[in-house]
Amino acid sequence: MRQGKSELRERETRELTEMEVLVSRLLRGGVLLSVALVLLGVVILLVTGNTGTGDFRGLSAKELTAYGAGGASSFPHDPVRALSDALHLRAYAVIAVGLLVLVLTPVLRVALTVVTFVRERDWSYVVMTLTVLTILCSALALGRAL
């Protein structure tokens, strides 16, 4: 009985590890995509001299990074808005989408962990992982409400 349980645990651990390798590849892919988007955004910023919300030439970095400032200093922080602006190749929006991809990579990891535990029929861990996923997803909605 005891032996059987430990064998089962060993098999579970092996499958968890295989899944983890897949997850770590996806995470790397996410980071690479994010880096590519951020770099693209920086290139657009330098080439156009425009943040996507206004021309930044002639303005100091201090003015441009003042908290909550408008005009060329503003940037999209609503995911949908950022995405649509990014499609118009607006510099800050492209960078913001790149950063959003980075923020979402761990969400993907947790979602895939749920799948692993479902396959293992390890229900207490399915509940635990789903709880984490729910908290994680509600964070974005919560920030918008503040």
């Binding site: 943040t51 510099a91 950063l99 990579t105 974005l140 909605a141 919560l142 920030g143 918008r144 503040l146």
Partner: peptide, 17 residues
């Protein structure tokens, strides 16, 4: 970190520059 980053991003505290 992704949990807090979600809150910060949506609130507008993640400045691209």
């Amino acid at each position: 970190a992704a949990t807090s980053a979600g809150v910060y991003f949506a609130r507008g505290d993640v400045h691209p520059a």
